[in-house]
Structures are given as C-alpha cells and as structure tokens.
Design a protein around this nucleic acid. Structure first.
Length: 509
RNA sequence: GCCGCUAUCGUCUAGGGGUUAGGACGGAUGGUUCUCAGCCAUCAAACCGGGGUUCGAAUCCCCGUAGCGGUACCA
C-alpha cells in the first residue's frame, strides 16, 4: 500500500514510464459506428473517461467512420444513447462539436488527403497497383515460405512504364506506407516498452483504392490534430501501434502515449464481439433489462482494474478519484454476468423505496400493468413488500404481476407440492382455503396485524401447519409458491380482491 | 504458418523474495422464517510446467506449454 501510493504520486507505471507529462490530459473514445456499443467498448469508454476526470482533462468522442460501407447513422445514435445512459458525457466531439471539429472522420477527408500528399512527396508512401487476387497470392506464398509478413513491398519501386500500364488497364491504386528498416520503439503504459523488429513490419495500405483513408492513417493524424495526449484502447490495436508511430514520424506529428487495456472475454476466454455475441453484450440491452448505470460502471471498472484487496463497491466519484492506469492488469477478464447481477441488486437495494418505485414504474408500464388508477402510495407499498428480491428492475414484473391482474396461472410445480397431488390432499387444501376465506371475510379490519393474528389463531387452534395454510393461500392469491410476506400480499390486495380469488382457487382444485 | 500479448481458486482480483497465498462473485452446508430472496455462520476451491538465481521464489531470469489477439483496400 505504501509503495502503491508512492508509485501513483511518482506518476509512474511499474515499468517506470511516466503516465502524465502534460498540463491538459486529452483522451478520446473512437468507436466505429458499425453496431451497438458493447461491454468491451463501454469499458474502453469508461477507462478513458475516468482517466480524463481523474486528471481534470477532456474526454473526446471521435467517430471513426471511414468504413463507409459498414457505418450507419443508426449505430452512431445507439452509441450516443449508450454513453449518455452510462453518464460518460464527452466534452468535445460526437454530436457536440468543439475546437477541433469536425469529429466525424468521414468529414475530415481533406485533412487526410493533405497528409497523404505529404507522405507521397516525401517518399514515405507509395502507390500500389496490386489487385486483390495478386495480394492473395503474395500472402499465400509468404505463408508457405513462413515469412514474418504477408506483403513484401514490391510496389515500392515501380517503373513508370509499369505504372502507365496499370493505369491503362484501369487499375485504381492504393497507397501504402513505407515502413522504416530500423526498429520501432513502442512504450505502453500498461504493457511496458519494447522494440519491434522491422523485419516483421509491413507496408500497410493507408488509402483504399476508392480514395478513402484507413484507420491507421486517420487515427494517428486525428490524435495529433486533436491534441490527444493518451490513447487508451483495447489490446486488439497493439499491432497497429508501430504502423501509426511510423506514420506519425514520417509526418513529423506528435505521438500520444499509449495504454493498451486487456480484452474483455466471454466465458470461453474469447474476445467479446458484436459478431459472435450479438446484442447479448449490448450496453443498451442491459439498460432495457433494468440494470442500473451505477452497477454497470462499477462492474465494468473492475474488469481489469483493481484498487486493493478489500473494496468491491465503488461509487462513480470514487472511481474517478481512485482510477489509475498503473493498476490496470495485463491479462484479459471474463465478463461474469453473476457478478453484475450481484452489483445490480446491491445498487437497487441501496435506493430508498420511493426512488426504487420511480425506477420500477416504467417496467410496469411497458407491460401495460398500470392503468392510472393506482395511487402512488400503494405502488410504494408493493415495492416495499418486494423488498430486496430484485436483481434487475425488470424483475418487478413477474414478481408483482398478480397485484395488478388476476390473469395468472397456478404454477404446476407449486400446485403439486402445496395443494396436493392426491384427492385427499386437495380436499384438505380446499377446506383450509374455505376457512381462511371465512376468516378474512369476518376479520374486523384488514391490516397486517389483524390478519396475521387471525390466521395464526386458526392454524394453531386447528392443528394445521402454518406453512401448509400459508402456501395454500399464497398460491390461491398469486399463483406461485414464493414471494413477499403473505400478510403484505393479502392486505395490499384488499379484502374484496382476496375474497374474489379464494373461491376461484377452490373451483380450480 | 508468422508476429505479438498473457498466465494466482470456476470467475474478478490482492500479492513487488520469508503470508496458514487474502478478499469478492458464484457454489455447498447449517441457522433465522409462512415461501422465496435476504441476512448470519461455516466449508470447499488457485500460484500452468521445467530449469535456474537465492539461505528462501506466486514474486526475479530462462526455456517450454497453453490460451488469446493480430495477420484486410475493418476498426
């Protein structure tokens, strides 16, 4: 602990790299709008946001939509709403604008074009007329020869005749970056430093044949143009880093500090992705299911980051205060829904009944259970009766449906266990229900204490097991064998409703 | 194939040469109770393997192995 606090005061990673060397920290989240925001993306956003907040810096939302074929406005808005729900508000970019606008890469093409011209003119990039088929062949050959890279840079020195011929054939060139033949040093705030062997570096395409620039080019240019000081992103980008550094060097651009955070994995240890996991991992889906923002943030923060060996629950303000890149681990973390559920129920239970009622009302509404005649106090009493039984807000629906409607089924399992599979048992249950009906009809007032006293008096005097009577009545009134205190249910339902439901249950028997 | 990254209970993790390897989720058992949930108590559960370095290694080094990521005119 002493060492840790020393370390963060010293502003260093375990490897001795200094984390912040600037007055104004500027970080960015740069999603490509090709789908919804998933858990992994949310974590990248959170880490960036926490880092910015911790250092009083700026969090920028840049939209990396250079893949025009896959980018859609719809997913861009999905991303906005997910980030907004999480409360990860951005200072610049997205739909907000800012001093370095535009923040949509598709609107920055002229900037990239200028840089490409510069690269071409300085001899750091070149046109490549290889066709996809040729490239495929080169790749296959390289693989067969066990070469460390799949493109050999053969277009670096094309003769002007060859170029003329290709143009005459109608070929549209791509632009490739000419990678240096000296090692590239990559300093990573999480992974440490290393030198990359130039033999493994490949002249990647930085502009497509349709003229649209690629990620490695646009990303590093924009990071420089937008004065990004730290690039915090998933380790899937680790192999892009040398290319981006090479481009920045060739262009004389400022290079940000890099921090590659480990991947979020599924239970099989594979990277979480839209493609393989569908919207099971979509942030918006969790909102719809009744997860709380606080739970989500707390959960996601602990995926790869830890504070000490004691604390699991972190308020957002505490995350901001305590978040430290030096305490982000190097290995991937499995997304464990059970832990999210635990945190979610924790945060739900921490709300007072009134807040919890407000939180839950929309979930009743979508199910059409509310019809404006309910008074709020009654709803609050229901939520109070439900107590700490909610894992998600949506759980309120199955757990309280019977308060709003008598259109419920008697669960087979419950019926079998508590109402009886035999004729004899059914008769007994029917008798108990009849008696309870009479008692509840006669009871002087319909409050918990009176009802409880009356029912206990009945069971004890007639030598009936309390459980048996209670469960018989519970199933009659709710259709299920579990739920809140039965006395709460009875009084919440009210005498009329209870006396209506009992005969119905007896008839069913 | 090639390049890279990683490696502590099932999961998230603490750990910085000497600890009965700690906590949390999940699991199991018991208690409380009208059921369920909760709560309380208890339990099971881990240092990938092999070599070094050292009096002493989960911790430092090397070699394996395994897993993952990348290997696109995606990001």
């Amino acid at each position: 602990m002493g060492k840790d606090s020393e370390r963060s005061k010293m502003n260093e990673t375990p490897d001795g790299l200094s984390i912040v060397e600037t007055d104004e920290v500027r970080v960015r989240m740069a999603p490509s709008p090709t789908g919804f925001l998933h858990i992994g993306g949310a974590r990248t956003a959170l880490f960036n946001w926490l880092f910015a907040k911790h250092y009083n810096g700026k969090f920028i939302l840049r939209i990396d939509d250079t893949d025009t074929a896959r980018s859609t406005d719809e997913s861009m808005h999905e991303i906005y709403t997910a980030l907004e729900w999480l409360g990860l508000e951005w200072d610049e970019g997205g739909n907000k604008g800012g001093p370095y606008a535009p923040y949509l890469q598709s609107e920055r093409k002229s900037i990239y074009d200028a840089h490409v011209t510069q690269l071409l003119e300085s001899g750091n990039a070149y046109h490549c007329y290889c066709t996809p088929e040729e490239l495929e062949e080169i790749r296959a050959q390289a693989r067969a020869d066990k070469l460390p890279r799949s493109y050999d840079g053969r277009s670096r020195n094309l003769s002007s005749e060859a170029v003329k011929r290709f143009i005459a054939e109608g070929r549209k060139p791509t632009v490739r970056i000419k990678m240096p033949d000296t090692p590239i040093r990559v300093d990573d705030l999480i992974l440490g430093s290393r030198n990359i062997d130039p033999a493994t570096l490949e002249d990647e395409v930085i502009v497509r044949s349709n003229g649209m620039p690629n990620y490695n080019l646009t990303s590093i240019i924009d990071d420089a143009e937008m004065r990004i000081t730290h690039v915090i992103r998933g380790t899937e980008h680790l192999n892009n880093t040398p290319t981006q550094i090479a481009i920045a060097n060739a262009l004389g651009l400022e290079i940000p500090k890099f921090a590659h955070i480990p991947l979020v994995l599924d239970s099989n240890g594979r990277k979480l992705s839209k493609r393989h996991h569908g919207d099971l991992v979509a942030v918006n889906r969790y909102r719809e299911q009744g997860y709380l923002r606080e739970a989500m943030l707390n959960f996601v923060a602990r995926l790869g980051w830890s504070y000490d060996d004691k604390q699991e629950i972190f308020a957002v303000s505490e995350l901001i205060e305590k978040f430290d890149l030096a305490r982000v681990g190097k290995s991937g973390s499995v997304f464990d829904i059970k832990k999210l559920e635990w945190l979610n129920s924790h945060y739900i239970n921490r709300l007072d009944v009134s807040e919890r009622t407000d939180a839950v009302i929309p979930f009743w509404e979508v199910e059409g259970l509310l019809n404006q005649t309910e008074d709020r106090d009654w709803l609050i009493r229901i939520v109070e009766a439900v107590g700490e039984r909610l894992t998600t807000l949506q759980d309120i629906v199955p757990q309280t449906r019977y308060f709003f409607t008598d259109d419920y089924e008697f669960e087979t399992k419950a019926v079998k266990k508590w109402w009886g599979g035999s004729e004899e048992k059914r008769e007994k249950t029917s008798e108990i229900l009849t008696n309870l009906g009479q008692i509840l009809e006669a009871v002087p007032s319909f409050d918990v204490e009176t009802v409880e006293t009356a029912i206990w008096k009945y069971t004890d005097e007639n030598d009936i097991k309390r459980v048996a009577a209670m469960q018989a009545l519970r199933i009659a009134l709710t259709g299920t064998s579990f739920g809140p205190s039965l006395f709460d249910i009875v009084t919440l339902l009210g005498r009329d409703e209870v006396l209506k439901r009992i005969p119905r249950a007896i008839a069913y028997l």
